[in-house]
Amino acid sequence: MDNAYEALVESEGDTRWAFGTGFDDPLAGVDATVPAGVDGPDLGAYCLMLGDDALILSHRLSEWCTRAHELEDEVALANISLDLLGQTRMLLARAGQADGSGRDEDRLAYFRDEEHFRNVRLCELPGGDFGRTIARLLVFASWRLAAFNRLGESRDPVLAAIAAKAVKELTYHRDYAARWLVRLGDGTDHSHQRAREGLEAVWPLVDELFEPHDVERRMVGAGVGVDPASLREEFDAVLGQVLEPAGLATPETPAMGRVGGRAGRDGVHTEHLGYLLAEMQGLARAHPEATW
Protein backbone atom coordinates (compact mmCIF):
# COMPACT_ATOMS: atom_id res chain seq x y z
CA MET A 1 0.00 0.00 0.00
CA ASP A 2 1.53 3.30 -1.08
CA ASN A 3 -0.50 5.26 1.38
CA ALA A 4 -1.04 4.46 5.02
CA TYR A 5 -3.97 6.86 4.91
CA GLU A 6 -6.02 4.36 2.96
CA ALA A 7 -6.15 2.05 5.98
CA LEU A 8 -8.31 4.57 7.76
CA VAL A 9 -11.79 3.22 7.19
CA GLU A 10 -10.86 -0.44 7.33
CA SER A 11 -13.06 -2.07 9.89
CA GLU A 12 -10.73 -4.94 10.73
CA GLY A 13 -7.18 -5.32 11.93
CA ASP A 14 -7.62 -3.37 15.13
CA THR A 15 -4.71 -5.23 16.65
CA ARG A 16 -2.63 -2.44 15.22
CA TRP A 17 -3.74 0.07 17.82
CA ALA A 18 -0.92 1.57 19.82
CA PHE A 19 0.20 -0.73 22.58
CA GLY A 20 -1.97 -0.91 25.64
CA THR A 21 -4.74 1.31 24.35
CA GLY A 22 -6.81 -1.01 22.20
CA PHE A 23 -9.19 -2.32 24.81
CA ASP A 24 -12.41 -0.98 26.27
CA ASP A 25 -12.54 -3.27 29.29
CA PRO A 26 -9.15 -3.69 30.94
CA LEU A 27 -10.17 -6.97 32.58
CA ALA A 28 -12.06 -8.44 29.62
CA GLY A 29 -12.12 -12.23 29.76
CA VAL A 30 -10.81 -12.45 33.34
CA ASP A 31 -12.78 -14.55 35.85
CA ALA A 32 -14.27 -11.95 38.17
CA THR A 33 -15.32 -14.31 40.97
CA VAL A 34 -14.34 -13.05 44.41
CA PRO A 35 -12.47 -15.90 46.19
CA ALA A 36 -14.36 -17.76 48.92
CA GLY A 37 -14.04 -16.15 52.33
CA VAL A 38 -13.05 -12.74 50.94
CA ASP A 39 -15.35 -9.80 51.60
CA GLY A 40 -16.27 -8.22 48.25
CA PRO A 41 -16.73 -4.62 49.44
CA ASP A 42 -13.42 -4.79 51.34
CA LEU A 43 -11.62 -6.14 48.29
CA GLY A 44 -13.22 -3.37 46.24
CA ALA A 45 -12.09 -0.70 48.70
CA TYR A 46 -8.60 -2.18 48.77
CA CYS A 47 -8.33 -2.13 44.95
CA LEU A 48 -9.59 1.46 44.97
CA MET A 49 -6.79 2.46 47.34
CA LEU A 50 -4.15 0.93 45.09
CA GLY A 51 -5.86 2.20 41.93
CA ASP A 52 -6.31 5.75 43.21
CA ASP A 53 -2.63 5.94 44.19
CA ALA A 54 -1.71 5.12 40.60
CA LEU A 55 -4.33 7.40 39.04
CA ILE A 56 -3.38 10.47 40.99
CA LEU A 57 0.37 10.07 40.57
CA SER A 58 -0.11 9.28 36.87
CA HIS A 59 -1.93 12.60 36.57
CA ARG A 60 0.87 14.49 38.30
CA LEU A 61 3.49 12.89 36.06
CA SER A 62 1.47 13.60 32.92
CA GLU A 63 1.63 17.28 33.82
CA TRP A 64 5.30 17.12 32.80
CA CYS A 65 4.37 16.44 29.20
CA THR A 66 6.12 19.04 26.93
CA ARG A 67 7.99 20.48 29.94
CA ALA A 68 10.89 18.06 30.48
CA HIS A 69 14.54 19.11 30.26
CA GLU A 70 15.41 16.57 27.52
CA LEU A 71 13.39 14.54 25.02
CA GLU A 72 14.61 11.25 26.46
CA ASP A 73 13.13 12.20 29.83
CA GLU A 74 9.98 13.51 28.18
CA VAL A 75 9.51 9.99 26.85
CA ALA A 76 10.47 8.34 30.16
CA LEU A 77 8.09 10.41 32.30
CA ALA A 78 5.22 9.85 29.86
CA ASN A 79 6.00 6.16 29.89
CA ILE A 80 5.89 5.95 33.68
CA SER A 81 2.66 7.94 33.73
CA LEU A 82 1.21 5.56 31.15
CA ASP A 83 2.27 2.47 33.14
CA LEU A 84 0.54 3.85 36.22
CA LEU A 85 -2.54 4.65 34.18
CA GLY A 86 -2.60 1.05 32.96
CA GLN A 87 -2.40 -0.18 36.57
CA THR A 88 -5.20 2.24 37.48
CA ARG A 89 -7.50 0.89 34.82
CA MET A 90 -7.13 -2.70 35.92
CA LEU A 91 -7.40 -1.92 39.62
CA LEU A 92 -10.46 0.30 39.26
CA ALA A 93 -12.12 -2.27 37.04
CA ARG A 94 -11.41 -4.91 39.69
CA ALA A 95 -12.76 -2.60 42.41
CA GLY A 96 -16.07 -2.19 40.57
CA GLN A 97 -16.35 -5.95 40.05
CA ALA A 98 -15.47 -6.90 43.60
CA ASP A 99 -17.65 -4.43 45.48
CA GLY A 100 -20.72 -5.56 43.56
CA SER A 101 -21.57 -2.03 42.37
CA GLY A 102 -20.73 -2.79 38.75
CA ARG A 103 -19.14 0.65 38.38
CA ASP A 104 -16.61 0.66 35.56
CA GLU A 105 -13.20 2.35 35.57
CA ASP A 106 -14.58 5.66 34.25
CA ARG A 107 -17.50 5.77 36.65
CA LEU A 108 -14.99 5.39 39.47
CA ALA A 109 -12.37 7.78 38.11
CA TYR A 110 -14.65 10.58 36.97
CA PHE A 111 -17.78 10.47 39.09
CA ARG A 112 -16.50 10.16 42.64
CA ASP A 113 -15.96 13.25 44.77
CA GLU A 114 -12.78 14.03 46.62
CA GLU A 115 -13.85 12.43 49.90
CA HIS A 116 -14.29 9.09 48.15
CA PHE A 117 -10.75 9.00 46.80
CA ARG A 118 -8.60 6.61 48.82
CA ASN A 119 -5.09 7.52 47.62
CA VAL A 120 -2.28 8.39 50.00
CA ARG A 121 -1.63 12.14 50.15
CA LEU A 122 1.90 11.73 48.76
CA CYS A 123 0.43 11.23 45.27
CA GLU A 124 -1.52 14.47 45.16
CA LEU A 125 1.30 16.80 46.22
CA PRO A 126 1.92 19.23 43.32
CA GLY A 127 4.79 18.10 41.13
CA GLY A 128 7.20 20.95 41.79
CA ASP A 129 10.54 20.87 40.00
CA PHE A 130 12.31 17.81 38.63
CA GLY A 131 14.09 17.33 41.98
CA ARG A 132 10.81 16.95 43.84
CA THR A 133 9.30 14.85 41.07
CA ILE A 134 12.20 12.41 41.26
CA ALA A 135 12.24 12.32 45.07
CA ARG A 136 8.52 11.56 45.14
CA LEU A 137 8.82 8.94 42.40
CA LEU A 138 11.63 7.17 44.23
CA VAL A 139 9.62 7.08 47.45
CA PHE A 140 6.44 5.98 45.70
CA ALA A 141 7.98 3.32 43.44
CA SER A 142 10.10 1.82 46.24
CA TRP A 143 7.07 1.57 48.51
CA ARG A 144 4.72 0.26 45.85
CA LEU A 145 7.23 -2.23 44.47
CA ALA A 146 7.75 -3.69 47.95
CA ALA A 147 3.97 -4.05 48.31
CA PHE A 148 3.33 -5.43 44.82
CA ASN A 149 6.10 -8.01 45.13
CA ARG A 150 4.10 -9.46 48.02
CA LEU A 151 0.73 -8.98 46.28
CA GLY A 152 1.88 -11.44 43.63
CA GLU A 153 0.93 -14.04 46.28
CA SER A 154 -2.51 -12.53 46.96
CA ARG A 155 -5.44 -14.93 47.38
CA ASP A 156 -7.30 -12.80 44.84
CA PRO A 157 -5.96 -14.16 41.55
CA VAL A 158 -6.94 -11.00 39.66
CA LEU A 159 -5.04 -8.77 42.05
CA ALA A 160 -2.10 -11.20 41.99
CA ALA A 161 -1.97 -11.04 38.18
CA ILE A 162 -2.21 -7.24 38.14
CA ALA A 163 0.60 -7.05 40.70
CA ALA A 164 2.84 -9.45 38.80
CA LYS A 165 2.60 -7.29 35.68
CA ALA A 166 3.09 -4.08 37.64
CA VAL A 167 6.24 -5.34 39.37
CA LYS A 168 8.19 -5.15 36.11
CA GLU A 169 7.02 -1.61 35.51
CA LEU A 170 7.67 -0.45 39.06
CA THR A 171 11.16 -1.91 39.00
CA TYR A 172 11.92 0.36 36.06
CA HIS A 173 10.27 3.38 37.74
CA ARG A 174 12.34 2.88 40.89
CA ASP A 175 15.50 2.44 38.87
CA TYR A 176 14.83 5.57 36.80
CA ALA A 177 14.20 7.67 39.91
CA ALA A 178 17.18 6.22 41.78
CA ARG A 179 19.59 6.96 38.94
CA TRP A 180 18.33 10.51 38.66
CA LEU A 181 18.43 11.17 42.39
CA VAL A 182 22.07 10.05 42.45
CA ARG A 183 22.89 12.27 39.47
CA LEU A 184 21.18 15.26 41.02
CA GLY A 185 22.60 14.65 44.48
CA ASP A 186 26.14 14.12 43.19
CA GLY A 187 25.92 16.56 40.23
CA THR A 188 26.39 20.28 40.89
CA ASP A 189 26.01 22.15 44.18
CA HIS A 190 22.79 23.60 42.85
CA SER A 191 21.33 20.25 41.84
CA HIS A 192 22.33 18.81 45.21
CA GLN A 193 20.36 21.53 46.93
CA ARG A 194 17.34 20.98 44.67
CA ALA A 195 17.44 17.23 45.33
CA ARG A 196 17.65 17.85 49.07
CA GLU A 197 14.73 20.29 48.95
CA GLY A 198 12.70 17.86 46.87
CA LEU A 199 13.27 15.08 49.35
CA GLU A 200 12.42 17.37 52.26
CA ALA A 201 9.18 18.38 50.56
CA VAL A 202 7.94 14.82 50.14
CA TRP A 203 9.28 13.38 53.39
CA PRO A 204 6.41 14.55 55.65
CA LEU A 205 4.15 12.26 53.59
CA VAL A 206 6.27 9.14 53.97
CA ASP A 207 5.03 7.86 57.35
CA GLU A 208 1.44 7.75 56.09
CA LEU A 209 2.50 5.12 53.53
CA PHE A 210 3.19 2.62 56.29
CA GLU A 211 0.18 3.21 58.52
CA PRO A 212 -2.43 0.49 57.90
CA HIS A 213 -6.09 1.32 57.39
CA ASP A 214 -8.77 -1.02 58.75
CA VAL A 215 -9.53 -2.27 55.24
CA GLU A 216 -5.88 -3.13 54.76
CA ARG A 217 -5.77 -4.98 58.10
CA ARG A 218 -8.80 -7.04 57.13
CA MET A 219 -7.34 -7.79 53.70
CA VAL A 220 -4.14 -8.99 55.36
CA GLY A 221 -6.29 -11.27 57.51
CA ALA A 222 -8.01 -12.66 54.40
CA GLY A 223 -4.68 -13.39 52.71
CA VAL A 224 -5.44 -10.83 49.99
CA GLY A 225 -3.54 -7.70 51.02
CA VAL A 226 -0.22 -6.59 52.39
CA ASP A 227 0.39 -4.93 55.75
CA PRO A 228 2.03 -1.62 54.84
CA ALA A 229 3.84 -1.53 58.17
CA SER A 230 5.75 -4.64 57.09
CA LEU A 231 7.23 -2.77 54.11
CA ARG A 232 9.11 -0.14 56.08
CA GLU A 233 12.31 -2.08 56.58
CA GLU A 234 12.73 -2.87 52.89
CA PHE A 235 11.83 0.71 51.99
CA ASP A 236 14.40 2.19 54.38
CA ALA A 237 17.07 -0.15 53.04
CA VAL A 238 16.36 0.81 49.41
CA LEU A 239 16.29 4.53 50.18
CA GLY A 240 19.55 4.16 52.10
CA GLN A 241 21.19 2.53 49.09
CA VAL A 242 20.24 5.49 46.91
CA LEU A 243 20.76 8.37 49.33
CA GLU A 244 24.29 7.26 50.21
CA PRO A 245 25.81 7.61 46.70
CA ALA A 246 23.65 10.71 46.16
CA GLY A 247 25.35 12.26 49.22
CA LEU A 248 21.92 13.04 50.69
CA ALA A 249 20.80 12.55 54.27
CA THR A 250 17.43 11.16 55.29
CA PRO A 251 15.37 14.30 55.99
CA GLU A 252 14.26 14.99 59.53
CA THR A 253 11.13 16.87 58.56
CA PRO A 254 8.24 15.71 60.77
CA ALA A 255 5.26 13.81 59.38
CA MET A 256 2.31 15.82 58.10
CA GLY A 257 -0.52 15.80 60.59
CA ARG A 258 -3.79 13.96 60.14
CA VAL A 259 -7.29 15.42 60.47
CA GLY A 260 -8.95 13.87 63.51
CA GLY A 261 -6.78 10.82 62.95
CA ARG A 262 -7.78 10.53 59.29
CA ALA A 263 -5.72 10.87 56.08
CA GLY A 264 -5.74 9.84 52.40
CA ARG A 265 -6.91 6.24 52.85
CA ASP A 266 -9.91 7.62 54.80
CA GLY A 267 -10.78 10.12 52.07
CA VAL A 268 -9.31 13.10 53.95
CA HIS A 269 -6.88 14.81 51.61
CA THR A 270 -4.79 17.92 51.14
CA GLU A 271 -6.29 20.98 49.49
CA HIS A 272 -4.50 20.06 46.27
CA LEU A 273 -6.67 17.07 45.37
CA GLY A 274 -9.81 19.11 44.72
CA TYR A 275 -8.11 21.14 42.00
CA LEU A 276 -6.60 18.06 40.43
CA LEU A 277 -10.01 16.37 40.28
CA ALA A 278 -11.72 19.51 38.98
CA GLU A 279 -9.34 19.45 36.03
CA MET A 280 -9.45 15.70 35.49
CA GLN A 281 -13.22 15.24 35.87
CA GLY A 282 -14.61 18.49 34.46
CA LEU A 283 -15.25 17.44 30.87
CA ALA A 284 -16.56 13.97 31.74
CA ARG A 285 -18.98 15.44 34.29
CA ALA A 286 -20.17 18.18 31.95
CA HIS A 287 -21.40 15.44 29.60
CA PRO A 288 -22.59 12.57 31.82
CA GLU A 289 -24.60 11.04 28.97
CA ALA A 290 -21.76 11.09 26.48
CA THR A 291 -19.72 8.13 25.31
CA TRP A 292 -16.07 8.70 24.46
Binding site: W17, A18, F19, G20, T21, F23, D24, H59, S62, E63, C65, T66, L71, E74, V75, A78, N79, S81, L82, L85, G86, T88, R89, L92, E105, D106, A109, Y110, E279, M280, G282, L283, A284, H287, A290, W292
Partner: peptide
Protein backbone atom coordinates in the same frame (compact mmCIF):
# COMPACT_ATOMS: atom_id res chain seq x y z
CA UNK B 1 -4.14 14.89 28.62
CA UNK B 2 -5.13 15.91 32.14
CA UNK B 3 -8.74 16.51 31.01
CA UNK B 4 -9.35 13.51 28.73
CA UNK B 5 -12.89 12.32 29.52
CA UNK B 6 -12.17 8.59 29.81
CA UNK B 7 -9.16 6.63 31.02
CA UNK B 8 -8.89 4.83 27.68
CA UNK B 9 -8.80 8.13 25.77
CA UNK B 10 -6.28 9.47 28.24
CA UNK B 11 -4.03 6.44 27.66
CA UNK B 12 -4.34 6.76 23.87
CA UNK B 13 -3.52 10.45 23.99
CA UNK B 14 -0.58 10.06 26.34
CA UNK B 15 0.83 7.24 24.20
CA UNK B 16 0.40 9.37 21.10
CA UNK B 17 2.17 12.39 22.53
CA UNK B 18 4.94 10.11 23.75
CA UNK B 19 5.28 8.69 20.21
CA UNK B 20 5.68 12.22 18.89
CA UNK B 21 8.57 12.86 21.27
Amino acid sequence: ITRAPSLRRKAILLAKVQDEA
